[in-house]
Amino acid sequence: MSSNNEERKRRNDLRGELIDKFPRDRSYLLPALHFLQEKFSFLSDWGLEVLGWHLGVPASEVYGTATTYTELLLSPPAEKTVSVCDGVACRENGAAQILEFLSNKTSFDLEVQKTDCAFMCSVAPAVSVDHRWYGRQVPGDALLRLVEN
């Protein structure tokens, strides 16, 4: 099968799935974007285009809407994600020290990100590893193991 045919099949399959799951109405745009992200782990250009076809919304509008939401990803996520909450409450409880510790100690290819308030303020400071949050963290070996395993 040529790559053109594969591409067409891929699009048709997705379109079929969208038809089954979402009525052709713009109010299903956000639920459908969530569905795409869950299925492919991020929103690809072709996926957004197919979604636009199905809902009858111009691709530019689909793209425009998708880009306004912070939780929607337009490129593949990193294989391993480590984030340190950098909200006001976590800062009060040593987020800066945790960031400094992790940036010095972790292996070279592990990118440690800062995130805005993750609403984990009551168990600050919080660190997330692959989207799971861990509270009351302190710089040290236990944290390093958590992050690197």
Partner: peptide, 12 residues
């Protein structure tokens, strides 16, 4: 209220 920061008993 959501109470947090430099307090000893953070919570709701």
């Amino acid at each position: 209220l959501s109470i947090s920061g430099s307090v000893n008993t953070p919570g709701v």
